[in-house]
Each structure stands twice: as C-alpha cells, then as structure tokens.
Amino acid sequence: MAWNEPGPGGNKDPWDNNGGPPDLDELLKKFRGRFGGGGKRGSGGSSGGLPKGMITMIAIIAGILWLLSGFYIVQPAERGVVLQFGQYLSTVGEGPHWRVPWPVQTVEKVNVDGIRNVSDTQMMLTKDENIVVVDMAVQYRVSSAEDFVFRVRDPDMTLRHALKSAVREVVGKSTMDFILTAGREEVAQQTELLLQETLDSYRTGLVVNEVNIKDAQPPEPVQGAFADAIKAREDEQRLINEAEAYANSVVPQARGEAVRRITEANAYQTRVVQEASGEASRFSQLLAEYERAPEVTRQRLYLETMDEVMSNTDKVLLDVEQSSPLLYLPVDKMGGGRAATSVPSMERGGLSSSGSSSSSSSSSSSRNSRSSSRERASR
C-alpha cells in the first residue's frame, strides 16, 4: 500500500520517525556505514569502501602529477636559483629544467638582464660649506642571482642607502661652483665608482650601469642670487671668448701687413742699391772716357743732356733776325706733340718761309755736329 493512501497503513511519511522530523545524525551514520567502509555487508564479508585497486591507481596518478610539477622553464633574461629544503643548491640558465617537486626543492627566478632604476634627491653640504640640492638617477642590473637572493635581505634598499652615502662623500669633497657648473660629470663618475665598491663589498649581486645627475641647484631661497652669479660668470666667459676671437683675427692680419712691408722695404733696398751700383759703374766708365778725351766727352755729355731735356718738352723756334715785331704762336699745336714747331715771321699779313728754312738748317747742323762728336768719342 502506498504511504499516501487512506486507511490504517496509509498517509504515513517514510521519513517520519515516530511521527516527528527525520533524525539527521542517524542518516549520517547510515551514509558513513554504507560508503565509508566502517562495517561488513552481508555474510560475504566484502568491504563497504573503495576497492584497493582504485586506491592504488589514484596514488599512482597523484605521484605522476607530483613528479610532473617539477618541470619549469627559465626565460632567456632570467636565472633560476634552485633551493633544497631552503638551502642554496645551484643556479641554472635559460631553458626547460626539472627539480624535485615541493617540498624538497624550490626555484626562485631572477631577472638578470632587465635594467632597474632608482632616483634620489638630497640636500648636502659641500666642501666650501654651501648647501646644494642634488637629484640623481641610477641604472643598475643583477649580476649574480645567488648573491642577489641570499647575501642581502633587500638588495634594492641596500643600493639606495649606499647611493646616499656615496653621493654625500663625493659632494662633501667638492666645491659648490664645481658641482653647479663643469663638475657634474666628474661627480657622477666618482659616485658610480664609490657606489660599485660598496655594493661589491656587501656582495649584493648588483652592478651599476650608469649614474646621472639630473639636476644640481642651490636651495630655493638663494636660487636668484646664484642665478645672477652664474649669469655674470657666463658673461665674463663670453667676453673673453669675443676678445680672443678679435685677437685671433687682428694679430694674423697685423703680422701679414708687417711681413708685406718688410718685403717691400727689402725690395726697395735692393732696387736702390742696384741703381746706385749701376750709376757708380756708369760714372766710373764715363770718367775713364773723360780722362782719355776731355773735350769730346764734355761735348757729348752736353749734347746728350740737351737731347734728353729737349726731347721731353714742347719747343718753339723763332727766327729773330727776320722776324717782325708781331709774332704768331700756334698755341693749338704746341700742346699736341713734342715735335719742334717753327714759327715764321708775319710781314703785312703774309707768312714768310725763311723762318722754316733757317730752323731746318739749324736743326740739321746741330744733328751733324752731334754725330761728329759721337764719332770722335768712339775713336
């Protein structure tokens, strides 16, 4: 009969326990007894839990998964630090590797090729008892993975503290003007060397690539005064450079002018000496000729002198004896050439030809006398 049918055996809840709610504890006990292997079923004595073969299979699968969990891959930029029960064992490079799975061995991967950065701004006292604010930036990387993991608890923090110490030491040995102007590069180099020495002594496994001074300024209240001082220094250097440029342009020009004048003076000296030597030699030769024939030489010198003088001047020849008181001078022809111009006498408005004949006869006679004197001198 169904539990919900009417009648003496019907309308009865199967979960009803003496007409009350079901007992949860009893149900749990029955569930555990059925699936937990807590008792025997029937008279056959077979176990109520999982079969032994299934338990062994589960154990084998779990062991295989545990062994497979030991495989790991190290990237090209990384190094793997293998730990055995927390103690350093070895360092492996890039590629796939296997380790004894946890909890026997563990691996810590460290990026050794990546560039790390740290910046620091400090207010420090210089050698000349001035205060300067220095803003620095450091680029570094990991050089030894095992030292980076085991030697120092926090290598990055150690580098920050070492940077503060190094830059304070270098700035404390330098003057403020040196730091603010031309000494930034040198300060950065000295800081890098000192910082690397400190990191190597601590065996942090870090190597410094570069130290840069991004800014170096006096404190805020006195920046205006320092800016004026720097501007004055720059103006001084600019004026010095301009003066040097002017000197470099003027001095070579003056030296060239001096060389030119010296050369011209030497040439003038040589020319004058040569001319004087020539004149002296000519005079000596002329003296020898004069001693042998004084009259002839004297006449020749006179004629040559007159010829030289008269050949370079305009001449007008007048016939004094046959000329009349009224003379006609051809002014328009006198300035045009060096040839002698004979001016005839004017008699009653006419021109006489006697002047030209007399002038031609006088010039021919002078030429004849001059040629005869030269012949005598040559003999």
Score class of each variant (00 low, 15 high):
residue 184 R to N: 02
residue 88 Y to I: 00
residue 91 T to F: 01
residue 61 I to L: 15
residue 74 V to T: 11
residue 335 G to A: 13
residue 350 G to D: 14
residue 277 S to V: 04
residue 328 Y to L: 11
residue 203 R to M: 01
residue 328 Y to T: 14
residue 230 I to T: 00
residue 211 V to G: 00
residue 200 D to P: 01
residue 75 Q to N: 14
residue 125 L to S: 12
residue 20 G to S: 09
residue 361 S to Y: 05
residue 61 I to Q: 03
residue 379 R to M: 05
residue 177 D to A: 10
residue 6 P to A: 09
residue 104 V to S: 08
residue 322 Q to D: 15
residue 149 V to F: 00
residue 245 A to D: 13
residue 255 R to V: 06
residue 343 V to R: 02
residue 202 Y to C: 09
residue 344 P to I: 00
residue 244 E to D: 02
residue 314 D to S: 15
residue 153 R to V: 12
residue 297 T to E: 03
residue 221 P to C: 08
residue 301 L to T: 03
residue 107 V to N: 05
residue 100 V to A: 13
residue 166 A to E: 04
residue 331 V to H: 06
residue 153 R to S: 15
residue 29 K to Q: 07
residue 218 P to M: 02
residue 68 L to E: 12
residue 134 V to P: 08
residue 86 G to H: 00
residue 200 D to S: 10
residue 195 L to K: 03
residue 164 K to G: 04
residue 11 N to W: 09
residue 104 V to P: 05
residue 23 D to A: 05
residue 36 G to N: 08
residue 155 P to Y: 06
residue 21 P to S: 03
residue 256 G to R: 12
residue 102 W to C: 02
residue 282 R to E: 03
residue 151 R to C: 06
residue 61 I to F: 14
residue 107 V to H: 09
residue 318 L to Y: 05
residue 130 N to C: 12
residue 297 T to K: 06
residue 245 A to I: 10
residue 235 D to M: 01
residue 169 E to D: 11
residue 146 E to V: 05
residue 346 M to C: 00
residue 290 Y to F: 15
residue 260 R to M: 01
residue 59 A to Y: 05
residue 165 S to T: 14
residue 160 R to Y: 13
residue 304 E to L: 03
residue 337 G to T: 11
residue 232 A to I: 01
residue 234 E to I: 05
residue 325 P to I: 12
residue 69 S to E: 09
residue 251 V to S: 00
residue 160 R to T: 15
residue 67 L to H: 15
residue 376 R to H: 09
residue 66 W to M: 03
residue 375 E to V: 08
residue 368 N to C: 11
residue 280 A to W: 09
residue 36 G to F: 10
residue 12 K to R: 14
residue 127 K to E: 08
residue 15 W to E: 04
residue 158 T to N: 04
residue 160 R to I: 11
residue 58 I to M: 11
residue 122 Q to K: 12
residue 230 I to R: 10
residue 63 G to F: 12
residue 99 R to M: 02
residue 252 P to T: 03
residue 237 Q to E: 01
residue 56 T to C: 08
residue 67 L to I: 10
residue 128 D to V: 14
residue 103 P to A: 02
residue 43 S to Y: 13
residue 233 R to G: 07
residue 268 Y to G: 06
residue 290 Y to D: 05
residue 153 R to L: 09
residue 220 E to W: 07
residue 291 E to H: 01
residue 266 N to Q: 08
residue 55 I to S: 10
residue 374 R to N: 11
residue 294 P to N: 09
residue 313 T to E: 06
residue 56 T to A: 12
residue 90 S to E: 14
residue 109 K to T: 11
residue 322 Q to W: 14
residue 244 E to L: 15
residue 321 E to Q: 12
residue 107 V to K: 08
residue 18 N to M: 08
residue 307 D to A: 15
residue 241 N to V: 10
residue 341 T to P: 09
residue 74 V to K: 09
residue 154 D to M: 03
residue 8 P to Q: 06
residue 242 E to H: 05
residue 169 E to K: 08
residue 52 K to G: 10
residue 14 P to H: 02
residue 24 L to G: 08
residue 235 D to F: 01
residue 151 R to A: 13
residue 167 V to W: 11
residue 76 P to W: 09
